[in-house]
Amino acid sequence: MDDRFRTGERVLVSLPDSPGHHRAPRYVRGHVGTVLAVHGRHVLPDDVVARMAEPHVEPVYAVAFAAGALWGAGDHTVTVNLWESYLEPAEEGR
């Protein structure tokens, strides 16, 4: 299966705040970042903890966020590794 997102693409962290084990820090949820690179394909931890017989294996992306967008201040970037199913394409204009 092809990777859903490409380097340079803008993505929205769309994971809802559902109970359970997820590896998307809350400070990036609902935020838009830019894909820097694909960091391999890895088993989705959420599925492992849910004890699924066949946990999903997905691309994991390095996604960079501007501090100003996350915190309202700061000139740095924060890059987070996010599994594909945590992400949606960012809508134009966001």
Partner: peptide, 12 residues
């Protein structure tokens, strides 16, 4: 100097 923070949240 540009600061880049890397949050190791997966297998990297």
């Amino acid at each position: 100097v540009e600061v880049r923070v890397w949050d190791a949240s997966a297998e990297t």
